[in-house]
């Protein structure tokens, strides 16, 4: 856009702005202790997702824990050989837990981003143009609302061998309706604001008005729903895996839970249940808590006097 002759200065300024932005966000989150705890949990989760497989003491699937005698150690509680115990098949729970974070992270992150991005764009375009564009896009969201997510996802996954990217696509393909509706209604009110009219009056094109004037003012809501999208995507991925429609080649937390459940060992093997269950619950709850902290700020209606 801009043909500035001082790209360097501009770049410094931008870096500066981003730095202060990050600092502001951090300072803001520090104030809300819950949200801050959420940040720590999510931070730990991302770390595990990235480095977990490297940190895992054993291969989660190939390696079988054996006792001194060499026989397979099945359903053993936490011991020195397996810090978090073993599964019914003699696999190391800790290794599975560490390795299982990655697919959860990938689907959560990209599913959430996809949900947010598609929803934001659809909402923006639909709300800004109105008329038949709006009508078509909104009926499309109605359609995705009426088709039940879980059964449709299961159907699609029976025909195609599941892998995490496909799951990410399916999840984003169904969840974008949520941000789309909210962003649209937000756009509808921003569109009526004077500065948008003023932009049109000064000759700004639709594209420019939409992305420079309307877009930035609904971006916070878009971010918020991206965060929620991450939580939804993680929950959806875990649910699909729990039903046995996960990527069969990868250990994920949902798949771990399915294995305990299927093998009928839930009653005894608490060490096998709790790591993945608490992991999923902690991450989804944390993401929501962070989102809520922002919602209190973004939603002008509920940010009245404290």
């Amino acid at each position: 856009m801009s043909t500035e002759t001082k790209p360097k200065a501009e770049l410094y300024k931008r870096v500066d702005r981003i730095q202060s932005l990050v600092r502001d966000q951090f300072a803001f989150l520090r104030q809300d202790r819950l949200a801050f705890a959420g940040v720590l949990v999510v931070g730990a989760f991302v770390f595990t997702g990235v480095f977990g497989p490297l940190l895992a003491p054993h291969d989660p699937i190939e390696y079988t824990v054996r006792d001194q005698a060499g026989s397979i150690l099945r359903l053993s509680g936490p011991t020195g050989a397996a810090v978090l115990g073993t599964t019914a098949y003699g696999k190391d729970v800790l290794s599975q837990f560490l390795a299982g974070a990655r697919p959860t992270l990938i689907v959560g992150l990209f599913g959430g981003l996809g949900t947010g991005a598609i929803g934001f764009l659809v909402g923006l375009v639909s709300g800004y143009y109105g008329g038949w564009v709006d009508e078509v896009l909104m009926r499309l969201t109605d359609l995705t609302f009426s088709l039940p997510f879980m059964p449709m996802a299961l159907l699609l996954l029976t025909f195609v061998t599941p892998n995490i990217w496909l799951m990410t696509a399916i999840i984003a393909g169904f969840l974008w309706k949520m941000p789309a509706r909210v962003v649209r209604s937000e756009v509808l009110s921003v569109r009526e604001r004077t500065f948008v009219k003023s932009a049109r009056a000064s000759g700004a094109s639709d594209f420019r008005t939409m992305f420079y004037h309307v877009g930035p003012n609904v971006l916070p809501i878009g971010f918020l729903y991206t965060a929620y999208g991450v939580a939804w995507a993680i929950a959806a991925q875990a649910s699909l895996a729990f039903l046995g429609f996960g990527d069969p080649t990868m250990t994920s937390w949902g798949r771990m839970l399915r294995q305990v459940f299927e093998s009928g060992n839930m009653r005894i093997a608490w060490w096998w249940v709790f790591p993945p269950a608490i992991g999923i619950a902690a991450v989804t709850t944390s993401v929501f808590l962070i989102g809520r902290a922002y919602e209190e700020v973004i939603n002008p209606e509920i940010q009245t006097d404290q």
């Binding site: 875990a238 459940f261 249940v273 999923i280 709850t285």
Partner: peptide
């Protein structure tokens, strides 16, 4: 927040 964000099967398992 915990109850609505956690997948229902995990709450169920707990």
């Amino acid at each position: 927040t915990f109850l609505r964000s956690t997948p229902v099967f995990i709450t169920g398992i707990f």
